[in-house]
Write a protein that binds this DNA or RNA. Sequence first.
DNA 1: CAGCATCCCTTTTGATACTG
DNA 2: CAGTATCAAAAGGGATGCTG
Lengths: 134, 134
Amino acid sequence: MAVSNSSHARPAEDLREAMCPHRLVLEHVTSRWGVLVLLALLDRSYRFSELRRHVGRVSEKMLAQTLQTLERDGFVLRDAKPVIPPRVDYSLTPIGREAAERVRALAEWTGVRMEQVQEARAAYDEAREAKLKP
Amino acid sequence: MAVSNSSHARPAEDLREAMCPHRLVLEHVTSRWGVLVLLALLDRSYRFSELRRHVGRVSEKMLAQTLQTLERDGFVLRDAKPVIPPRVDYSLTPIGREAAERVRALAEWTGVRMEQVQEARAAYDEAREAKLKP
DNA sequence: CAGCATCCCTTTTGATACTG
DNA sequence: CAGTATCAAAAGGGATGCTG
């Protein structure tokens, strides 16, 4: 039976893992919060709450999940200092930096082309509008 | 009030569109089916059903939705020939090709690093295992 | 053939409360 | 502080039937 090696159940991931593993890695680094986490860590390391404030509007659950996924894939290093109160620092591994840099390239490209995208959307929407009430 | 210019309702997108538009473009090109469509069209143009067979395991609903999103953003060109039975060809626009090439770079990178990711996962899972039953 | 509309289930995400 | 557990809401996705 399909045994997940990870602790918490993620059936959809497990199924798709079998058929196309590297597609899943791509999804991890381009996921909604994955992108933002990688870009943040490209600058410097962050503590959990600090990262949460920096990213903004992310629940602790999703941030924790995202960080765990990226850590498991070997992109993020989790450094939990044995102090009270707890202090955990997150940073990129060398391979994580490679990933983050490529994600940044893509993200920056979208920024550069944003204006053309807006124009394309306006044109598309107008063309639709025209077709509905001529 | 938040009026969607697109015909069908996508409330979450509309909300997020307002605060970070280019993040959304990134999501479109890195979406589950968006990636596969862009990579396919990087080789050549495809007809709808042809593309569906090539991508595999994608419902027509999702393929149509993906293509519309990419078309609206200006990445995909939809060429509907006025013949019976209908024939519609999809291809990349110049800006769509730019997007697709960057997505391909990221996708190929994950392929190259896949082995290291697998090792990282194995190490992570083993470390967890050890902690649970020492 | 190429799609749109509808219904319905699955997966993801978020809010909240709680713990070491 | 740095999470985990739980539950409810939302989005994603598929099957089917219908149209030009």
